[in-house]
Amino acid sequence: MTDKILVNMTVNGMVCERWIEPRLHLGDFLREELGLKGTHLGCEHGVCGACTVVVDDEIVRSCLTLAVQADGAMVETIEGKSESGALRDLQDAFLERNALQCGFCTAGLLLTADALLQAEPEADRARIRDHISGNYCRCTGYHAVVDAIETVGRQRRSGGRGHRHE
């Protein structure tokens, strides 16, 4: 009765089809079935934000999403977003500002920050802090992370790559 189920989803632009156990969460699916190790599992109960991925253009916790529930969805991970260049400005800003240390939380933070800046490139420091509060970073003091996101928001507003949602 816990038979495997066939799922079909588009991950980073590639269609993939797998027979999986229903209990497999999306984070494990990406890591174990597809070898996409850039999505990190920090708590597996939806608190730390390290496992954040993009499903149908919205950030979600991959540990709180069953892979079978992503059937038919468009999933994007840090690997895909890096290859497409979609996060290049944020990644550069994180590096320039040293907004990461161990890097374990970084993929989740980048995707979360990008979601904010797509909707609100004008977000101020308080708004940025509020928005990324679902993503724990234990190494930085968050200060540099906020700096980096603020900088990219300014760049995107001034023409670079502003692509507003809605």
Binding site: K37, Q91, L95, F104, A107, L110
Partner: peptide, 13 residues
């Protein structure tokens, strides 16, 4: 650190 922002680090898991 570039590998870390691109999800290409190698942690034990």
């Amino acid at each position: 650190a570039r590998r870390l922002v691109e999800g290409r680090g190698t942690y034990v898991d």
